[in-house]
Amino acid sequence: MPETKNLIIIGSGPAGYTAGIYASRAQLKPILFTGEEPGGQLTWTTEVENYPGFPEGVQGPKLMQEFRKQAEKFGTEIIDAKVDKVDFRVRPFKVWSADKEYQSRAIIIATGASANWIGLPNETRLKGHGVSSCATCDGFFFKDKDVVVVGGGDVALEDANFLTKVTKSVKIIHRRDCLRGSEFLQKRARENKKISFVWNSEVVDVLGEKKVSGVRVKNNQTNEESDIACDGMFVAIGHHPNTEIFKGQIELEDKAGYIVVHDDTRTTVEGVFAAGDVADFKYRQAVTAAGMGCEAAIDVEKWLENYEKVIAKEADKKNC
């Protein structure tokens, strides 16, 4: 039988690590599984300009390394692996990672969200050959080339701006005729001479044999199709919550699968809490995720104080 832990934290973005900092300072001796993208979405960015306390900005990967160090400092046990399966129908809860079973009284889910793809067969085929979702990783390979960015939100605008530093031109392809991104980023993109916009358009195919040579777009007002020649396509069309392994265990909202929370960070299973982008489709900021991670850790601490009573109450219910 594996030892029963007080708390397992699943996820290693701002929410997960902050939960780790607070829970370890509260002597809960938590374990934290980092998942396949340790540090989460911020490790895909370069400069983070809106995290308080860094007036000069801070590199995303660097910020996440500091979060991790701070969680480790107070005794969070960090395991660099992903969780494959959970069972929240038993107490203590069970969690499996790399064929090993773990048990815990409480769980904080902070698995965040991952980038969406358009879902075209040729997009998948040409991934790594001109199709990318990480401008900061791959922009380097498109020196003096023409690229397109698909999307109209903050990430698309940030990516486009970043890409103009190396590429010859950037076309932003957006399915609406206006941008969703913040005013500041919109202004910066509009004033950048290398950036142009293709409005009301959706990418319907990615062209190229061995590598990307262009994209086919369809104007959703006129239904006309046309080809845009380019060497790279960067996709920035939003995110989906990473909740696949929790299906059937806790309530997820119907539309996109975000975790449903009530009374701050509580999920529909008592003892399972959620924090950050996996449960927040409204704010989705590093700083709000960190805040929610803190809330979840405090909620867990309070809830564990009554753990024996919860168990006794559940046993009573089963007996009658």
Binding site: E37, P38, G39, T43, G60, C134, F140
Partner: peptide, 13 residues
Amino acid sequence: WAPWCGPCQQQGP
């Protein structure tokens, strides 16, 4: 890999 790439920092170890 390259030092500026976040996911590469995950792959490295």
